[in-house]
Design a protein around this nucleic acid. Structure first.
Lengths: 205, 205
DNA sequence: TTATACATACACTTATGAATGTATAATCGT
DNA sequence: ACGATTATACATTCATAAGTGTATGTATAA
């Protein structure tokens, strides 16, 4: 075939990423062949191998495509100074996270792939480390905000900020997994905001 | 080779299950071939195909080998009447769960495989449903115990039992995933009892 | 004219499932 | 109780399918 413009080439690259996302999501990472992905993008393996070294690199590129913006968005809400009570900032950030998850199918698909449809082992060990890090950083950020809430006086006394942050972290992680494994069914999805309110209510003074 | 006694055959069956567990855990389910598993058990694929139809059936057998006893043990603690306060029963059951997880490497390996090293998709859909069900049942059991605690008067008022059960469920799920992904490192493991105490303390009256 | 953006073809490896082989428990008839 | 028969518990072999990475071809944008 013919050579494409640079912009066209970038579009095909994006098409491959999109095809990888849907294919990984449908069949799992291990069971998705590069031929399948290429075919889903209307291309051949040659195109895939031109743009990406192998499946692992394609996986990482697909992830970065949607992961970085999400983290930035959460941070801005979490550290926003438009909330008088830091606990409100946490509550808003948590709600916003699940709202984005509901609104952005690309992000949802990528999270589904990373959590459910990817065997975390061997050469994907580095990938796994990359997945963990945002969670760790989120834990530290939360602890800071809980400390702010403590000095603000809105926090129910008796527990250190670190313990509260751990509890919230486990709660969010578990809720995310529950949503992902149950396919974001309405019944559970509608309970999410109330669950967050309950969770935060338990630590208000 | 020669034919074995029925008891010997049962032992080789168990050897295959053990080999599958360690192999799945090391390399992931998809990347583990039946030849690898057979070799790890000191056998050939012929033995595996004799005892199991295919990899999926072997996976399910490996799971049932350790999963059923765990559920029974949790239930006995959860519904034990040796605790005057139902909240203490919940706290004890949660602590016991993570204690068993720490003590029983087989159960830990199987959970690691199911959560981290198994792509939940396609023909494993039934398997996934089997994995979800205990979680769902646990949620319902918890709700009952929270209701008992409410009528017992030890529960901090303001939240329905269903909401509290959901929160605890998400907490446990998240904590389990955290432990599994971080390889049960001591630092986090030692925090588990305190986290459970914190979690329960937040809902005591 | 050359580097790019792919498509096509090739060589190699690996896994699966079924077929076949085989020594011996287990069972059955006498 | 003992040999003959049969079913069992595997090992071995075979046929086939898929996937990967690389090498090569090629039209065209740069």
């Amino acid at each position: 075939m013919a050579r494409k413009t640079r912009e066209e080439a970038q579009r095909t690259r994006q098409q491959i990423i999109d095809a990888a996302r849907t294919t990984f999501n449908q069949h799992g990472v291990a069971r998705s062949s590069l031929a399948q992905i290429a075919s889903a993008a209307g291309l051949t393996r040659g195109a895939v191998y031109w743009h990406f070294k192998n499946k692992a690199e394609l996986f990482l590129s697909m992830r970065e495509d949607v992961f970085v913006p999400m983290i930035e968005r959460m941070d801005t809400t979490l550290f926003s100074n438009s909330y008088s009570d830091p606990l409100d900032a946490i509550e808003a950030a948590l709600k916003d996270f699940f709202l984005v998850l509901d609104e952005c199918p690309n992000l949802r698909q990528v999270l589904e792939i990373m959590v459910l449809r990817c065997e975390q082992v061997d050469e994907f060990a580095e990938i796994q480390a990359e997945i963990e890090r945002p969670g760790q950083e989120f834990l530290q950020k939360m602890e800071k905000v809980y400390q702010k809430a403590a000095s603000h006086g809105s926090l129910r006394p008796g527990q250190p900020a670190s313990a509260l942050a751990l509890d919230t972290w486990a709660f969010i992680s578990g809720l995310l997994h529950a949503l992902l494994t149950r396919g974001f069914e309405k019944k559970l999805k509608q309970q999410v905001p109330a669950m967050i309110v309950t969770h935060m209510q338990l630590r208000r003074g």
